Simulated scan of single mutants.
Amino acid sequence: MQLKNRPVLGAVVLSLLAHGLVLLLLGPTLFSSRPQEPHPTVPVEVKLTRPTPQKVASPTARPASPQPAATPPHQQTPATQEAPPAPSAEDWAFAGRYTLKNSKGYRHNWGRQVRSMMGTAVEGPDQGMVRFRIEIAPNGTLAKLETLWSTSPVAEQKAREAIAHMPPLPPTPTGKPLVFEKTIVFSAFAGDDTPLYRHDCDPEVPAFRNPFVWNGQSEKWRDDDPPPVKVLTGQELEDCRKQLPAETVQSEAARDKRVMDRWGTVKSGRPGAPD
């Protein structure tokens, strides 16, 4: 057993001798205890300054006027829309004899007269809409005015002031009280609302009626009979068509805009979509 372990012992002894020799040669370099030199300090100079006394303005001196702030280049001027012209004497003459569709021409001229007296609409929080329920007496005077809803108190106030100072209006076309609802749009982006009259002699389209409606008290029953539709024939149709005025470019353009705003383009069928 001793003969077999001799080579291993010899290798261990040689390894220890080699490590000792390396430590002996590199020891002074690796384990030097040389002190480090301190860093030189830079002197700091401190200067004491006295506060500058403020000048007291004399009592007779006037304060300088503030300079107006410069408008940022990115800020845009708000949009405006001038008031439309008031209905002319010819417009009121036509409205005074037009009896179709609950005196359609009279109702339109009444709203146009109010909007023309409200002045220029400026883009901002003051613009808006107001809807009234109006009753006009047979002699053309205002009998009742009720606000149904409003999106701007400024628009409602301007509309009421215009209604209070409206000029005398002609009598109603039917000689009876005229009751209707009207929305006054006071906005910088309002479109022309000139109506079309060409379809006023056509039969009324029956409104949808729910056949299953029930008030909760009476006997349940189903109403499948549509309301009767009055169709003008013969002399009645001819007399009706005599009241229809000639169409104008403004009425056609206003009608096209209303259709586009409601249904969008023909290609996409979505409002606001490009062609």
Rank of each mutant, 00 (worst) to 15 (best):
P125I: 11
K242T: 04
T174K: 12
D256R: 04
P35N: 02
A143V: 02
M260P: 08
S88P: 10
P206V: 11
A164K: 14
L16G: 07
R131V: 13
S33K: 11
V13N: 00
L178R: 02
Q76S: 14
D200S: 02
I163F: 10
G96D: 12
T265V: 05
S251D: 01
D225F: 09
P63E: 01
R50Q: 13
G128K: 05
V179D: 04
M1H: 04
M129T: 10
A89D: 05
V56K: 05
E123V: 03
F31E: 11
V13E: 00
A246I: 12
A86Q: 11
T77V: 04
K4F: 01
P227H: 05
Q36R: 01
V12R: 08
Y197M: 03
P35M: 00
L16C: 01
T49H: 11
R209P: 00
V42R: 15
P7V: 08
Y98E: 09
R115Y: 10
V12W: 10
T71R: 05
L23I: 05
P38Q: 07
V205Q: 01
A137P: 03
S88D: 14
A159P: 00
D224S: 07
R198M: 10
W263C: 13
I184Q: 02
G191W: 03
P40M: 10
V259Q: 07
T141P: 04
W149G: 02
